[in-house]
Write a protein that binds this DNA or RNA. Structure first.
Lengths: 251, 251
DNA sequence: CGACCCATTGAGAGCATTCAACGCGTGTGG
DNA sequence: CCACACGCGTTGAATGCTCTCAATGGGTCG
């Protein structure tokens, strides 16, 4: 299945960016009304995806960015040795495809974790708009720079962390992202399987399960299937912010 | 020490981009002559840094990108719990500061690993040039996108790897980067301490040392202090490309 | 020459993986 | 409508990798 081979269901009414719930977080964030309107003109009507639907295959040509309107998606990269790695997770208001601009090819498959809608932003039109608007140009560069920074820091941190702390970091990250989107930070649905979470964190599904049980025993967290409830946010945050493996002294 | 508090030695002759050894890799790569000349006009004369000199402190205001002309640098991030993390490494022709654009602040300290020269590219001038030149605009976006992609993939891979494979991945990455720069890919100097390498890879210096000894015993690599010599590139590459921990079956 | 940092080596402990087995829920086909 | 297969999640036991801690030697800089 290639990205051009299928026509997706599109929202006929094409809800505008101006009325979008997540406009404050999306590409439109902080833009003046004029630029927001121009951006709105180039955004195509939202695409509807079913749970588990792949809408861009690894290696497929890149020609659009996508903004998540509702639902969530993961990026899956298949390595040379046939490993399946989950390398990214997107929630409403987040921008998909920034890592494909350089090579003009999607570095991984994009898979909906649940029923999901995404707005398509044709890249050549966005680039043209960048030429006309310094605001939009800066906004794009900020998105790119911010995401690079966040990933660099959090992944380098994870490399030094035990499974217990890794998972806590992950959950607090998700929690914060939900909070920013106006959802409850302490009670959310995360449509990732244990296997997906494990792959994303560089652990095994068994270890992820065991850690969730441990949190439960310590009254830190309640989890069942996709439902997560952070019972003690303070202690959970302390756990996530705790330094490296064991209690090594700082040099 | 703040970034504005010290005046650095600058190359008075200000070698131009046009004659630079690494122009094919730097920001200038692939640009038409006209754009390269315009870029050259905004680049300030190269700054000379001594070994171990810090030339931007974590939290310092960001107002310029830097391109490495000769030498190498690391980024060091101090976390809330006083850990020192090495989160990036730059070689000649690479661009420093892309992760600071969004927040207008350097997320980590920039430290020269050896005697080093860097070209300063004032960001506000570059941004202005982006408005005038679609070529430069795309070039910057490509740098940002490529770096995000590379880090996302390689760090997620590292999360799943044993120390032995992690270090092999790192060395092959460095090797490839030297090769692209016209240096020997099999015999290079890497001015990072064992501690720096360990921090970068999420390991301990002891483990890094033990793995280097192991490579040595297997006639894969010779290393002494900063000198690295890859004796069996083929096997080293196979080791780096080997899948996750142990020989787990692919699902 | 001495202090200090870095690199190396050894021993022991701890943590995450591997492998195996089981229960559960879902979706499919009879 | 039910039986069944399948994938997912859970639990247990054992292996082994990497960390921690400690001690030593070598290099560098004052």
């Amino acid at each position: 299945m290639t990205s051009g081979g299928k026509s997706y269901t599109r929202d006929p009414d094409g809800l505008s960016c101006l009325s979008c719930q997540v406009k404050c977080l999306c590409l439109t964030a902080g833009l003046p009304l004029k630029e927001m309107a121009e951006l709105n003109d180039i955004v195509r009507p939202a695409v509807t995806l079913d749970k588990h639907e792949t809408f861009a295959t690894q290696g497929a040509a890149f020609d659009s960015l996508y903004a998540v309107r509702t639902g969530s998606l993961k990026q899956v990269v298949v390595t040379g040795s046939d490993e399946h790695l989950v390398t990214a997770l997107w929630l409403p208001g987040e921008l998909i495809g920034l890592d494909a601009i350089s090579q003009k090819v999607h570095p991984g498959s994009l898979v909906a974790l649940e029923n999901t809608t995404v707005c398509e932003i044709p890249y050549y039109k966005l680039d043209e708009l960048c030429g006309r608007s310094a605001e939009v140009r800066r906004r794009i560069q900020c998105c790119l720079s911010q995401e690079m920074h966040d990933e660099r820091l959090s992944l380098h941190l994870l490399l030094h962390r035990t499974a217990e702390v890794r998972l806590a970091c992950f959950l607090m990250d998700i929690s914060e992202r939900f909070r920013l989107r106006g959802y409850s930070p302490h009670h959310f649905r995360l449509a990732m399987s244990r296997r997906d979470i494990a792959s994303y964190l560089g652990l095994t599904p068994e270890t992820v399960g065991r850690m969730l049980v441990k949190y439960q025993q310590e009254n830190l967290l309640f989890s069942r299937r996709c439902e997560f409830r952070i019972l003690d946010p303070e202690r959970m945050k302390r756990l996530a912010d705790a330094s490296g493996r064991r209690q090594r002294l700082c040099s």
